[in-house]
Write a protein that binds this DNA or RNA. Structure first.
Length: 311
DNA sequence: AAGACGAAAGTGGTTGA
DNA sequence: TCAACAACTTTCGTCTT
């Protein structure tokens, strides 16, 4: 788990400004350190609608005294150098504050020119990945996989013309699937500004272009997660997995939402062991509706001849 | 009162001409 | 590109505990 920094002053010192990211959804300024660890350095309490303008993109634009940085715009969109003289446009001498800012901007400008566009894109992607991973509580393996996927995509030019955030979200989704850690698209989308549709498009694109071998989602992977969020024990889990396996043999799985089937299996297994949960609870844990749980449940007891104790 | 059930209409994505 | 289609969701009324 990642700690919250309370000594904002010292934390600000340790965190170079170009490693600070504003996360609009949570209203937090997050510092990403070299090793990818994220710290919340400031919580913006009052998030009025006016904060919309203060998203990461806007910040980046303002910070760099240039146009927005796009992968296509060869040289970072810095169109004018900052004058070395400490005077403003009308020739007046600048206040100390303004002078400090000007020199800061000069420094950034020099720094921004050094890495090539690929590296810069990758760095931006890393930032977004770190923020998302931080919010979602992703483990290191997933982060590495996702970044690996993204880097490959970037190097093969597959990312051309697509926004970084949905691509990263898609890479995370793919990484989760590959590592068999169940995360629905909906879930990932809820952490980003990108729509589910957009992420799905990017995901399909990535899989196709990079020829990623993504295993078919297995309902059994979802069982653990659902059971865990409902606080159900190992007995229920293994029973649910047994049920899912049976369902596969019976051939009632094809084309169905694996999360829905897993939910129904957990629901049934919990009933069998007298640790009953409502359909509503199970459905929420699985990210499907009660109706789907009901339908799968009905199919299960119909085809598998497993019955809950009618008590 | 809360949960379970099921019907009916709506939604977004896939498929095949 | 469009229409048909399957799976899932939303909504809502009814039954059960």
């Amino acid at each position: 788990m990642i700690g919250y920094a309370h000594e904002e002053e010292s934390e600000h010192q340790q965190c170079p400004p170009d490693r600070v990211v504003f996360d609009e959804a949570s209203g937090q300024y997050i510092c990403i350190s070299e090793d990818g660890t994220a710290y919340v350095i400031e919580q913006v309490l009052d998030q009025g609608p006016e904060w919309r303008a203060f998203d990461a993109e806007e910040r980046a634009r303002k910070s760099r005294t240039g146009g927005p940085i796009s992968p296509e715009s060869g040289s970072a969109g810095v169109s004018s150098m900052i004058d070395w003289r400490d005077r403003d446009a009308s020739g007046r001498k600048l206040s100390p504050e303004r002078r400090a800012e000007a020199s800061r901007l000069r420094r950034w400008q020099i720094r921004a020119k050094v890495p090539d566009s690929l590296e810069r894109n990758l760095q931006q992607a890393r930032d977004i990945l770190n923020v998302l991973a931080f919010k979602m509580g992703l483990i290191q393996v997933i982060k590495e996989r996702a970044l690996q996927i993204y880097r490959e995509a970037l190097e093969k030019g597959v990312t051309k013309g697509r926004a970084v955030e949905p691509l990263i979200a898609a890479a995370i989704y793919a990484a989760c699937r590959i590592e068999r850690l169940p995360r629905t698209l909906d879930e990932i989308a809820s952490y980003t500004k990108a729509s589910k549709k957009e992420i799905a498009r990017c995901y399909r694109h990535l899989v196709k272009e990079l020829k990623l071998k993504v295993p078919v989602a297995d309902p059994r992977d979802y069982v653990h997660k659902i059971a865990a969020t409902l606080g159900l024990g190992g007995k229920v889990v293994s029973k649910a997995i047994e049920i899912v396996t049976e369902a596969k043999k019976a051939g009632i799985v094809a084309g169905k939402d694996p999360a829905g089937l897993a939910a129904a299996a957990v629901y049934l297994a919990a009933q069998i062991y007298g640790e009953e949960r409502t359909q509503k609870e199970v459905a929420a844990a699985a990210g499907v509706t009660e109706v789907t749980v009901r339908n799968r449940y009905k199919e299960l007891i119909q085809h598998l001849k497993i019955r809950p104790p009618t008590s």
